[in-house]
Design a protein around this nucleic acid. Structure first.
Lengths: 192, 192
DNA sequence: TTGATTGTCTAGCAGTGCTAGGATCGAATC
DNA sequence: GATTCGATCCTAGCACTGCTAGACAATCAA
């Protein structure tokens, strides 16, 4: 059985290598540069090997997205836990979210811009995605205010952050003044 | 000179046909289906004709985007002008914006998701884009509140709308509860 | 009727995601 | 230790993409 186990380990290791390489390549040169050929060359295997791990390119994007979701959740929780009081907690969360999007544009794209074949807001939504939303809900739910559903509030606040993140990165919003926009969002939307 | 004029007219007409056909095809089957071959076939010309009007596919997307920007500006102004008081004006604007995005997903993608080769938030930004932002600013500037720059407020409110529009359409947010989200945004962000 | 200038098309390039089928290698059996 | 046999991997190729060079035909001025 040891031989089989070793093979399984090696296979899992290669799968991690594929995802990590795809992510690296995407961050370096954008997702357009992540072609199956280039990816295969980088991991030093032939193209068809990719298809023995994933159904196609879309599933590779999905794998990067799930990895990113876990990191985003961790970043958000970490920022929230280091802040005092609801108001500062929400502000720290917002900054951490936008910072993650700015520092990992390709991962953020995989999560929210590209089609990674993932189900959102459904029962069969992968756990990391649900957990990322949960991480937002933990800090945002407590500032929803009376009569406002915490989930609905979180969705709306999240949408605002997402809009700032994408429009800024796409050059639709001037990159300065990120901080005052965050202040505005937090001061007005959150009930502390 | 009349012959030249006729030719120029016919050429301009064909250019409109290209843009309209690209838009129609994109709304019907998504931008992925808008290939140069299919587009050429639909307008009953060969592929290279497209390149005598536009530098490439990206420029065609850009043309659709500009058309959409003008319509979006008109829709927003129309909704705002038919509402009484700042609060209702902002709410009507928000609904009109989200409605436009939902009814014209391909155009909205051309504007804000895809690369149409357009410059945003700069001096050489095309007029329709500037005007669309101006349309938002007209109604949103008056509810920015004391000490908040109207432009900055408009950017932030716009980002929130954009986030709601994209996340909803991509299936990241459940499509029901659009109205309460709008209410929340308007009630909290706008100072009336 | 020429000659030149437009305008348009056919054919092709390099690249894409993905896959069928054959070669190769290693583990288990005799 | 030789031999089967199944898993693993690669070569080669398909149909498609955006884009372009060069041939061809239609139109105009002389």
């Amino acid at each position: 059985m040891s031989v089989q186990e070793r093979k399984q380990r090696e296979r899992a290791e290669r799968e991690r290598l594929i995802v990590a390489t795809a992510r690296e390549l995407a961050e370096q040169q954008g997702w357009d540069a992540v072609t199956t050929r280039r990816l295969a060359e980088r991991i030093e295997y032939s193209q068809p090997v990719l298809y023995s791990h994933f159904r196609g390119k879309r599933e590779i994007i999905g794998a990067v997205a799930l990895e990113g979701a876990a990191e985003l959740a961790a970043a958000v929780r970490d920022a929230a836990s280091g802040a005092d009081g609801p108001r500062e907690r929400v502000a720290a969360l917002a900054r951490a979210y936008l910072d993650f999007a700015a520092r990992n544009p390709a991962v953020y794209d995989a999560l929210f811009q590209l089609d990674g074949g993932l189900a959102f807001a459904q029962e069969d939504t992968p756990e990391p995605l649900k957990d990322a939303f949960a991480a937002l809900l933990e800090s945002l739910g407590e500032v929803a205010g009376d009569g406002v559903h915490p989930g609905l509030f979180t969705e709306t606040f999240w949408a605002a952050l997402h809009g700032l993140a994408t429009l800024t990165r796409a050059g639709r919003l001037p990159p300065e003044y990120v901080e005052p926009r965050v202040e505005l969002l937090v001061d007005r939307l959150a009930v502390v």
